[in-house]
């Protein structure tokens, strides 16, 4: 399959992820949408890596997966801490600091 198809798919994923971040207010869903964004980047990296015949993109994707896992772990821990103090994870409801 041509590389361009993969890029279209990665762009669609990135768009869905960005839309999810902007439109959803549940912090859990927002974290999932961020994962979609990261995976869009991964897919583009792998597609370019294949078409260029260069392994660096593959290596990059592995690092991204590891770091995304670290970020998700920290994000979920913070979410749990938030739920304990407020009993909600809605991003609009947790805001108490003055804008």
């Amino acid at each position: 399959m041509p590389t361009l198809y993969y890029l279209y798919l990665s762009f669609a994923l990135f768009f869905i992820g960005t839309a999810g971040v902007l439109l959803r207010r549940n912090a859990l869903i927002v974290l999932m949408a961020i994962e979609l964004q990261l995976n869009a980047g991964n897919l583009a990296l792998l597609a370019f890596s294949r078409s260029l015949g260069d392994l660096k993109g593959h290596v990059f994707a592995f690092f991204v997966i590891a770091l995304a896992a670290a970020e998700a772990a920290v994000g979920l821990a913070i979410l749990v801490g938030m739920y304990r103090t407020r009993q909600t994870i809605n991003l609009d409801e947790v805001a108490t600091m003055k804008r």
């Binding site: 990665s10 927002v30 964004q37 980047g41």
Partner: peptide, 16 residues
């Protein structure tokens, strides 16, 4: 997370 997601996508395009 959003900023790093956007940056990673930009980086993948730069790589390409």
């Amino acid at each position: 997370g959003v900023a790093s997601g956007a940056m990673l996508y930009g980086m993948s395009l730069l790589y390409g």
